[in-house]
Protein backbone atom coordinates (compact mmCIF):
# COMPACT_ATOMS: atom_id res chain seq x y z
CA UNK A 1 0.00 0.00 0.00
CA UNK A 2 0.99 3.63 -0.50
CA UNK A 3 0.67 6.07 2.36
CA UNK A 4 1.25 9.70 3.23
CA UNK A 5 2.99 10.24 6.56
CA UNK A 6 2.78 13.53 8.42
CA UNK A 7 5.51 13.36 11.04
CA UNK A 8 6.54 15.74 13.80
CA UNK A 9 10.14 16.84 13.26
CA UNK A 10 11.93 18.78 15.97
CA UNK A 11 15.72 19.03 15.99
CA UNK A 12 16.04 19.56 19.76
CA UNK A 13 14.28 20.67 22.94
CA UNK A 14 14.61 24.34 21.98
CA UNK A 15 13.47 23.98 18.36
CA UNK A 16 9.84 24.90 17.68
CA UNK A 17 9.19 21.82 15.56
CA UNK A 18 6.72 21.23 12.74
CA UNK A 19 4.83 18.51 10.89
CA UNK A 20 6.58 17.32 7.72
CA UNK A 21 5.08 15.25 4.93
CA UNK A 22 6.65 12.01 3.66
CA UNK A 23 5.05 9.83 1.00
CA UNK A 24 5.91 6.14 1.32
CA UNK A 25 5.28 3.32 -1.15
CA UNK A 26 5.22 -0.45 -1.02
CA UNK A 27 4.18 -0.86 2.59
CA UNK A 28 3.05 -4.42 3.35
CA UNK A 29 0.11 -5.34 5.57
CA UNK A 30 2.19 -7.77 7.69
CA UNK A 31 4.76 -5.13 8.59
CA UNK A 32 4.64 -3.65 12.05
CA UNK A 33 4.24 0.10 12.34
CA UNK A 34 7.86 0.47 13.43
CA UNK A 35 9.08 -1.65 10.50
CA UNK A 36 7.26 0.83 8.30
CA UNK A 37 9.17 3.59 10.10
CA UNK A 38 12.43 1.64 9.56
CA UNK A 39 11.62 1.52 5.87
CA UNK A 40 11.08 5.28 5.78
CA UNK A 41 14.34 5.85 7.64
CA UNK A 42 16.28 3.58 5.28
CA UNK A 43 14.98 5.74 2.43
CA UNK A 44 15.86 8.97 4.23
CA UNK A 45 19.38 7.77 4.99
CA UNK A 46 19.73 6.70 1.36
CA UNK A 47 18.91 10.26 0.33
CA UNK A 48 21.37 11.69 2.84
CA UNK A 49 18.64 13.05 5.08
CA UNK A 50 18.43 12.59 8.81
CA UNK A 51 16.17 9.73 9.83
CA UNK A 52 13.22 10.26 12.16
CA UNK A 53 14.27 9.68 15.76
CA UNK A 54 11.97 7.58 17.93
CA UNK A 55 12.32 5.39 21.02
CA UNK A 56 11.93 1.64 20.58
CA UNK A 57 13.65 -1.48 21.79
CA UNK A 58 12.00 -4.84 22.49
CA UNK A 59 9.39 -4.62 19.73
CA UNK A 60 7.13 -7.04 21.50
CA UNK A 61 5.09 -4.70 23.66
CA UNK A 62 6.83 -5.10 26.99
CA UNK A 63 9.75 -2.66 27.38
CA UNK A 64 7.57 0.44 27.14
CA UNK A 65 10.04 2.37 24.97
CA UNK A 66 7.92 3.02 21.90
CA UNK A 67 5.66 5.98 22.22
CA UNK A 68 3.96 7.41 19.16
CA UNK A 69 0.79 9.42 19.01
CA UNK A 70 -0.79 8.15 15.82
CA UNK A 71 -3.83 9.78 14.26
CA UNK A 72 -4.67 11.41 17.57
CA UNK A 73 -4.34 8.26 19.70
CA UNK A 74 -1.58 7.06 21.94
CA UNK A 75 -0.11 3.91 20.25
CA UNK A 76 -2.54 4.44 17.37
CA UNK A 77 -5.73 2.56 16.56
CA UNK A 78 -6.39 -0.78 18.25
CA UNK A 79 -6.72 -1.59 21.92
CA UNK A 80 -4.33 -3.33 24.24
CA UNK A 81 -1.25 -2.78 22.10
CA UNK A 82 1.86 -0.66 22.01
CA UNK A 83 3.08 1.12 18.87
CA UNK A 84 5.43 -1.76 18.07
CA UNK A 85 2.51 -4.22 18.14
CA UNK A 86 0.46 -2.15 15.73
CA UNK A 87 0.51 -3.69 12.26
CA UNK A 88 -0.02 -1.99 8.93
CA UNK A 89 -3.04 -4.18 8.23
CA UNK A 90 -4.88 -1.66 10.44
CA UNK A 91 -4.48 0.92 7.66
CA UNK A 92 -5.67 1.22 4.07
CA UNK A 93 -3.96 2.07 0.84
CA UNK A 94 -3.99 5.85 0.34
CA UNK A 95 -4.32 6.69 4.05
CA UNK A 96 -2.69 9.76 5.55
CA UNK A 97 -1.19 9.00 8.95
CA UNK A 98 -0.32 11.66 11.51
CA UNK A 99 2.55 10.75 13.84
CA UNK A 100 3.43 12.89 16.85
CA UNK A 101 5.37 12.52 20.09
CA UNK A 102 3.78 12.20 23.54
CA UNK A 103 2.90 15.74 24.52
CA UNK A 104 3.05 16.64 28.21
CA UNK A 105 4.89 19.21 30.29
CA UNK A 106 6.51 16.41 32.29
CA UNK A 107 7.68 14.67 29.08
CA UNK A 108 9.74 17.30 27.20
CA UNK A 109 10.61 16.46 23.60
CA UNK A 110 14.26 15.51 23.09
CA UNK A 111 14.18 15.13 19.33
CA UNK A 112 11.43 14.34 16.79
CA UNK A 113 9.27 11.65 18.41
CA UNK A 114 11.59 10.98 21.35
CA UNK A 115 10.61 12.40 24.73
CA UNK A 116 12.17 12.47 28.19
CA UNK A 117 10.18 10.27 30.59
CA UNK A 118 12.68 10.31 33.46
CA UNK A 119 9.95 11.93 35.58
CA UNK A 120 8.43 8.42 35.86
CA UNK A 121 11.68 7.07 37.30
CA UNK A 122 11.75 9.85 39.89
CA UNK A 123 8.17 9.06 40.94
CA UNK A 124 9.18 5.41 41.51
CA UNK A 125 12.32 6.54 43.36
CA UNK A 126 10.06 8.49 45.73
CA UNK A 127 8.59 5.30 47.14
CA UNK A 128 7.66 2.66 44.56
CA UNK A 129 9.43 -0.16 46.39
CA UNK A 130 9.52 -2.29 49.49
CA UNK A 131 12.51 -1.35 51.63
CA UNK A 132 14.18 -4.72 51.88
CA UNK A 133 17.90 -5.17 51.40
CA UNK A 134 19.44 -8.09 49.57
CA UNK A 135 20.42 -10.67 52.15
CA UNK A 136 19.20 -14.11 51.26
CA UNK A 137 17.84 -14.27 54.80
CA UNK A 138 14.32 -13.02 54.25
CA UNK A 139 11.33 -15.20 55.15
CA UNK A 140 10.69 -18.32 53.14
CA UNK A 141 8.65 -17.28 50.11
CA UNK A 142 5.72 -19.44 51.22
CA UNK A 143 5.74 -18.20 54.81
CA UNK A 144 3.05 -15.62 54.10
CA UNK A 145 0.18 -17.02 52.02
CA UNK A 146 -1.44 -14.35 49.88
CA UNK A 147 -5.02 -14.81 48.66
CA UNK A 148 -4.91 -15.61 44.97
CA UNK A 149 -7.34 -12.82 44.22
CA UNK A 150 -5.07 -10.22 45.84
CA UNK A 151 -2.00 -11.65 44.13
CA UNK A 152 -3.77 -11.57 40.77
CA UNK A 153 -4.92 -7.98 41.25
CA UNK A 154 -1.43 -6.94 42.34
CA UNK A 155 -0.05 -8.64 39.25
CA UNK A 156 -2.52 -6.89 36.97
CA UNK A 157 -1.46 -3.53 38.39
CA UNK A 158 2.21 -4.51 38.16
CA UNK A 159 2.03 -5.20 34.43
CA UNK A 160 2.26 -1.43 33.74
CA UNK A 161 5.13 -0.93 31.29
CA UNK A 162 5.70 2.76 32.08
CA UNK A 163 5.24 3.87 28.49
CA UNK A 164 3.33 7.03 29.38
CA UNK A 165 0.38 6.52 27.05
CA UNK A 166 -1.93 7.43 29.96
CA UNK A 167 -0.23 10.80 30.34
CA UNK A 168 -0.19 11.46 26.62
CA UNK A 169 -3.87 10.61 26.35
CA UNK A 170 -5.09 12.59 29.35
CA UNK A 171 -6.27 16.11 28.55
CA UNK A 172 -4.67 17.18 31.84
CA UNK A 173 -1.48 15.14 31.29
CA UNK A 174 -2.15 13.39 34.55
CA UNK A 175 0.01 10.46 35.62
CA UNK A 176 -2.57 9.03 38.01
CA UNK A 177 -2.93 5.70 36.21
CA UNK A 178 0.82 5.10 36.22
CA UNK A 179 1.33 6.12 39.85
CA UNK A 180 -1.77 4.32 41.09
CA UNK A 181 -0.70 1.08 39.41
CA UNK A 182 2.47 0.92 41.54
CA UNK A 183 0.72 2.15 44.69
CA UNK A 184 -1.99 -0.49 44.19
CA UNK A 185 0.39 -3.35 43.53
CA UNK A 186 2.20 -2.78 46.80
CA UNK A 187 -0.95 -1.84 48.77
CA UNK A 188 -2.54 -5.15 47.81
CA UNK A 189 0.36 -7.22 49.14
CA UNK A 190 1.29 -7.74 52.79
CA UNK A 191 4.93 -6.89 51.98
CA UNK A 192 3.88 -3.37 51.04
CA UNK A 193 1.79 -2.60 54.11
CA UNK A 194 4.48 -1.29 56.42
CA UNK A 195 5.36 1.66 54.24
CA UNK A 196 1.97 2.12 52.58
CA UNK A 197 1.14 5.52 54.06
CA UNK A 198 4.51 7.13 53.36
CA UNK A 199 4.63 5.57 49.94
CA UNK A 200 1.42 7.04 48.63
CA UNK A 201 2.09 10.49 50.11
CA UNK A 202 5.64 10.65 48.73
CA UNK A 203 4.81 9.32 45.29
CA UNK A 204 1.88 11.69 44.86
CA UNK A 205 4.02 14.57 46.07
CA UNK A 206 6.72 13.72 43.53
CA UNK A 207 4.10 13.35 40.80
CA UNK A 208 2.92 16.90 41.52
CA UNK A 209 6.48 18.24 41.57
CA UNK A 210 7.16 16.79 38.12
CA UNK A 211 4.37 18.87 36.61
CA UNK A 212 1.81 16.17 35.81
CA UNK A 213 -1.76 17.46 35.81
CA UNK A 214 -4.68 16.49 37.99
CA UNK A 215 -7.11 13.66 37.40
CA UNK A 216 -10.66 14.57 36.41
CA UNK A 217 -11.80 10.98 36.02
CA UNK A 218 -12.53 11.00 32.30
CA UNK A 219 -11.15 7.47 32.01
CA UNK A 220 -9.37 8.10 28.71
CA UNK A 221 -6.14 6.67 30.15
CA UNK A 222 -7.70 3.29 30.82
CA UNK A 223 -8.98 3.10 27.25
CA UNK A 224 -5.58 3.76 25.70
CA UNK A 225 -3.45 1.82 28.18
CA UNK A 226 -1.73 -0.98 26.24
CA UNK A 227 -1.77 -3.21 29.31
CA UNK A 228 -5.35 -2.58 30.34
CA UNK A 229 -4.47 -1.07 33.73
CA UNK A 230 -7.81 -0.47 35.42
CA UNK A 231 -9.24 2.81 36.73
CA UNK A 232 -9.93 0.90 39.94
CA UNK A 233 -6.29 1.49 40.75
CA UNK A 234 -6.89 5.24 40.80
CA UNK A 235 -9.81 4.75 43.15
CA UNK A 236 -7.64 2.57 45.37
CA UNK A 237 -4.86 5.16 45.37
CA UNK A 238 -7.29 7.92 46.29
CA UNK A 239 -8.47 5.79 49.19
CA UNK A 240 -4.88 5.07 50.26
CA UNK A 241 -3.99 8.74 49.94
CA UNK A 242 -6.94 9.94 51.96
CA UNK A 243 -6.34 7.40 54.71
CA UNK A 244 -2.66 8.33 54.82
CA UNK A 245 -3.34 12.06 54.76
CA UNK A 246 -5.85 12.09 57.61
CA UNK A 247 -3.79 9.76 59.77
CA UNK A 248 -0.55 11.67 59.21
CA UNK A 249 0.85 13.55 62.22
Amino acid sequence: MNLTLKIWRQSGPKDKGAMKTYPIQGVEADMSFLEMMDMLNEQLVGKGEEPVVFDHDCREGICGSCSMYINGEAHGPGRGITTCQLHMRSFNDGDTIYIEPWRAKAFPVIKDLMVDRSSFDRVIAAGGYVSVNTSGNTLDANAIPIPKEDADKAFDAATCIGCGACVATCKNSSAMLFVSAKVSQLALLPQGQVEAADRVLNMVHQMDLEGFGSCTNTGACEVECPKGISLENIARMNREFLTAAVSAD
Binding site: Y129, V130, V132, L139
Partner: peptide, 25 residues
Amino acid sequence: EVSASIIDQCVAQGVPFAREYGGLL
Protein backbone atom coordinates in the same frame (compact mmCIF):
# COMPACT_ATOMS: atom_id res chain seq x y z
CA GLU B 1 22.42 -23.40 45.80
CA VAL B 2 21.39 -19.72 45.82
CA SER B 3 18.31 -20.25 43.63
CA ALA B 4 15.92 -20.65 46.56
CA SER B 5 17.04 -17.35 48.11
CA ILE B 6 16.17 -15.56 44.88
CA ILE B 7 12.52 -16.48 45.22
CA ASP B 8 12.49 -15.44 48.90
CA GLN B 9 14.13 -12.13 48.02
CA CYS B 10 11.76 -11.38 45.15
CA VAL B 11 8.65 -12.18 47.19
CA ALA B 12 9.93 -9.89 49.95
CA GLN B 13 10.24 -7.14 47.33
CA GLY B 14 6.60 -7.55 46.34
CA VAL B 15 7.08 -9.45 43.07
CA PRO B 16 3.58 -10.84 42.33
CA PHE B 17 4.31 -14.45 41.38
CA ALA B 18 1.43 -16.70 40.36
CA ARG B 19 -0.29 -18.34 43.33
CA GLU B 20 -2.63 -21.22 43.96
CA TYR B 21 -6.00 -20.82 45.65
CA GLY B 22 -4.44 -21.68 49.00
CA GLY B 23 -2.29 -18.57 48.68
CA LEU B 24 0.98 -20.41 48.11
CA LEU B 25 3.26 -20.08 45.11
